[in-house]
Amino acid sequence: MRLISFGMILFLFWLSLSGYFKAFLLTGGLLCTLFVLYVSRRMKLLDSEGYPAHLLAAASTYWPWLLWEIIKAGWSVTKAILKPGRSISPVMTRVVAGQHTSAGIATYANSITLTPGTITTGVKGNILTVHALERSGALDLEDGGMDARVSRFERGG
């Protein structure tokens, strides 16, 4: 099931990159798809961690939320860059990742890094070390709003 859906995604990816519908090129795309499928099955990449297909529905609401967070955080970093004088208050802190799967923790850590103003510098178990450009950014993370949102995403909501 995973194999078939992954194969379809790969073939659609090929089609959207090539844009040609000649028999020769389509056959080439099919062969490449099959080869990649064979290799990723041999490498056992298609488990719930390497190909989290069950999170696809949850991602459709999580990504827009994350996008809005990125825009908000990016705007505050922009203000910090443009303000003359010393406008930053860098802080390092540790936060708890409340997720139960490694895919969930990775999503949380990557979301922190993706939003400008906060960077995950280390992961040990479910404790993330975070460098924040501004003190308020670190305190927001410690409050755990994003953590709760990622946990909801992990459960498929």
Binding site: T93, R94, K124, G125
Partner: peptide, 13 residues
């Protein structure tokens, strides 16, 4: 270069 080190609030793992 940080203003405040809040890493002590949790220990690794």
């Amino acid at each position: 270069e940080i203003d405040e080190d809040r890493r002590d609030r949790l220990r690794d793992g």
